[in-house]
Amino acid sequence: MDTSETYDIETPYPYIEESLNLDADTFETMWQLLSCIFDYWELAMPTSGAKSQLLVFMQNRMKINLNYYAEYKNAACVIHELNQKFGKHNGTIHLLTSPEAAIKPANTRLARARQMVSNEFITLALSIGGFKSFGAKNALGYINGGNVEGKAPYRIFSDHTDEDSKKDI
């Protein structure tokens, strides 16, 4: 039996590994939601890895606040109901665009699904490459690599009179 003490190990958010395991239906519904965000705003989907990035993101949210387990379950339930009412694609778009999902405080299940889940997924979608559809080369949250000469990881402005402008006192 391991009797070593662990009480003074630093931890910013204690969590239980098993609590991060969402059921397959909920995760697949969240993946459909993220895919719909990419489709609706015609965002550039990464060629690979988007689904696993979604999984890591959701687990990270649950690590910090286990309430996200319930938020994701709630969002999946809301999407199922909306899809039944408006049709599979239109139901999810209703979640993304309906003004009634934006009311504050978020005291309906619809509003919570929008403000706690799909809004965060929009930020995630942009940060894993979706922003590229708007012409930029880098964006907040995107890990685009280091400052390599001649291969700057963002759109640059070449300053042809650079040397003159540097002259000071």
């Binding site: 700057a152 963002y154 759109r155 402005f157 070449s158 300053d159 402008s165 540097k166 002259k167 000071d168």
Partner: peptide
Amino acid sequence: AFPYTLEDKPSIEAMQSLGIKYS
């Protein structure tokens, strides 16, 4: 140095036209 971003373009061109030094 990190190169100037494209967002710097308006400011840099304006400063160039006014003779204001930048780096």
